[in-house]
Amino acid sequence: MSDLVHKDHARDPLMIAEEWMNAGRDVAIATVVETWGSAPRPVGSHLVIDMDGNFEGSVSGGCVEGAVVAEAADVLAEGKPRMLEFGVADETAWEVGLSCGGRIRVYVERLG
């Protein structure tokens, strides 16, 4: 069956999230749910993060991943999902905005 599995599955964030979960790690899943303008990653893209800050996947071209990983730590601690928004209109744009000028909403939730 191995040749039925797409080669990208090795780096597939949701497959990795399941592996981490099975290994007993706390996992947060971040998902791009909306985009406006030019956004680097399409709606549905995932970044998965564990309690030690390890992450796989992406929600942007590397512009906001750091901020999402930081928020994920809080989401893991509290258990409550959060909606994050990034873009040039955001007051944090200077620090973690999208240089492409787009705007994205990222839903961050705990697995389990």
Partner: peptide, 15 residues
Amino acid sequence: MDPHSLKKLNALRRD
């Protein structure tokens, strides 16, 4: 995300 949802989703994707 519900762990069962993730397992079910990944199983469908593998198939």
